[in-house]
């Protein structure tokens, strides 16, 4: 029982779900506006690296977070220029930027920190201790000592859910993703809306990246995101392009991830699951979710389609 729903597993679930959720939220925002951004993986990675880099150089946590998010914004801006202004293939542009992010961060990491590793003294994102929960079984252990970014993520989920479905800018953003021509004829600036959405997705993914490096690991290592941005996109689909759904899907994936750790060495009727098999759980879940839900949930009608305004 303990390995399935114990405080340890649940705490790990939340920890592992958070970066996936942030990437998924980024995906929701950008795809609701009609731009596919698979460079979210790269945005996470640069966020993770430049957060550590800035923390090392400035010794200031706010500066580190700001630089991490700026790095994500910069990468997303390149995607926006390619995808929106130049109407390039969004998958190709996203993939190219992912390769750029991987190469850039690995190179800089090697140049700067290969001999020593990233410094152990950098400021990290603090955890939030909920003292009053200490005595509560399971729940206290699960949420009583999580990173501040976890709570920020939760706030972002609520904010985005309300923003997309209960505000005027949210309505406009959705209309741009569904029928850009209609939005255009009503005086809504399709390109500007999409730029903002892509940039926001980059910032959200970068926050997910910096969470990995400055909260979970306390350091940077090569390709440390390891596909979490892509799993985030799967969570977005699984969650039907809504922030709440994306959070729920991220928690499912996080739970799969947590299980793959907590089930290690556990014996069931004399059989021990091989580690290699267990570590495929989150990826199997991803495939199942995408295969099972991609057809059933409806994506924004203009998702991934460049918009060319008439005339000029």
């Amino acid at each position: 029982m303990e390995v399935l729903i114990g405080a340890g597993v649940l705490a790990a679930t939340i920890r592992l779900a958070t970066p996936v959720a942030l990437a998924a939220l980024g995906g929701v925002v950008t795809e609701r506006s009609g731009v596919v951004n698979i460079a979210l993986e790269g945005c996470m990675l640069v966020g993770a690296f430049f957060g550590v880099f800035a923390a090392d150089k400035t010794g200031s946590l706010p500066a580190a977070l700001a630089v991490a998010i700026l790095a994500g914004l910069a990468l997303a801006a390149m995607h926006a220029v390619a995808a929106i202004t130049f109407r390039a293939d969004q998958i190709v542009s996203g993939m190219a930027l992912n390769i750029l992010a991987l190469g850039l961060t690995s190179y800089l990491d090697y140049q700067l920190y290969s001999s020593t590793g990233t410094p152990p003294t950098i400021p990290l994102v603090p955890n939030v201790h909920l003292g009053f929960l200490e005595k509560v079984p399971v729940l206290g252990g699960a949420v009583g000592d999580q990173s501040a970014i976890v709570w920020v993520t939760l706030a972002i989920v609520v904010f985005l859910q309300l923003f997309l479905f209960r505000t005027v800018p949210g309505l406009r953003l959705r209309s741009v993703g569904e029928h850009p021509r209609a939005a255009d004829t009503l005086g809504i600036d399709v390109r500007r809306t999409r730029y903002w959405a892509v940039l926001a997705s980059g910032a959200l993914a970068a926050l997910g990246g910096v969470y990995l490096s400055l909260s979970v690991a306390g350091s940077f290592s090569d390709n440390m995101t390891n596909g979490k941005g892509f799993i985030g996109l799967a969570a977005m689909i699984f969650g039907r392009w809504t922030p709440l759904g994306a959070l729920g899907a991220a928690l499912v994936f996080g739970y799969g991830d947590a299980l793959s750790v907590s089930l290690q060495g556990v014996e069931v009727a004399g059989f021990v699951f091989p580690v290699q098999l267990l570590s495929t759980i989150p990826y199997l879940l991803t495939i199942l979710a995408v295969a099972g839900f991609v057809g059933r949930s409806r994506m924004p009608a203009a998702d991934g389609q460049p918009y060319e305004s008439e005339g000029h």
Binding site: L171, R174, E178, R181, A182, R298
Partner: peptide, 9 residues
């Protein structure tokens, strides 16, 4: 001619 309406709204 081609309606400029957003179907899910």
């Amino acid at each position: 001619q081609h309606f400029m309406l957003v179907p899910p709204l």
